[in-house]
Amino acid sequence: MNPAFQALITIIVGVGGCVGYFYLSNLFLDRVLFPARGPNTGRNINRANAVRPWLFLFPALFALGLYLAYPVFETFRLSLIDRNAGGAFVGAENYARMLNDPKFWEALRNNFMWLLIVPAASTAFGLLAAQLTDRIGWGNIAKSLIFMPMAISFVGAAVIFKLVYDARPEDVAQIGILNAVYMQLGGAAPVTWLTVPFWNNLFLMVVLIWIQTGFAMVILSAALRGIPEETIEAAIVDGANPFQIFFKIKVPQIAGTIVVVWTTITIVVLKVFDIVFAMTNGQWETQVLANFMYDKLFRANDWGMGSAAAMVIMLLVTPILVWNVYNARKEMR
């Protein structure tokens, strides 16, 4: 069957099925199960209203449970068994093997470096861009252009930056802009930037910073505009200079938003996979956890260690998860 045709059928069946499910189940509830007539009208209406939310929620809860909640527990179970030994329980052995793998430590170390640098740099650039573009006439165009990388896939960005980092032999013209500038500045020989250990991590991080800055800028710009005018005017009257106004008046007032931006980017960083996979595939000491996990799961077919690595990512995400839930609950009260 032609996939396009299959897609069309899926849309029709999916949409029709959803609408049909919601419509018919409501009809069933109101007409057959608890009809709003006869001797028990009042009780029936109450019962129908008690059941209805669950009718509305059921497909979503089912999908969430199956696609996000169940895998967490299943992955945990898989991390404790040995698939090749018929699924025998091996306790922490997979984790022990992982801790003995130098590649794991490399990935962990790199991931921490990503965690320290990328959210900080993206937020800082975003804040700078937001503050500066708010003050000028063509600010919206500038914002649009800085925001644009958000629409570009990690893979697309990887290609874009691979061209930036490209290196040719010394005697021909450089086509990567970084090497061209480097040679102009008197570099001895073109550098294959992505193969220089340690520094290559930074060159990969640049890609994600480039993508995430626009996100930080958009949100921080909205927050900056939400600051009450009076506080700034008062500071001006008191003789504060623009830098003092920015750092002592504006930044403290949007601290909450900065934290939200920071944590959101942190989560993106923890899951970063495509960029490393496409640009270096973890060679030259650029491994990160998500790619390490992919390696173990699908290349080495080692589900035990792969699941253990996935659990490490989950563990790193958990504090943010708890913090988000705590905030959401506080807000609902």
């Binding site: 299943e74 992955t75 923890l270 799961l297 996935a310 990512i313 998860l321 988000n324 839930v325």
Partner: peptide
């Protein structure tokens, strides 16, 4: 309905669950 706040919290929690965990299962 009872349990609404809990479900909202659960949705917020799932927002950050890495989909890497879901691959093999």
């Amino acid at each position: 309905f009872p349990g609404r706040a809990l479900l909202v919290a659960a949705v917020v929690a799932m927002l950050v669950v890495p989909l890497q965990l879901a691959l093999i299962p």
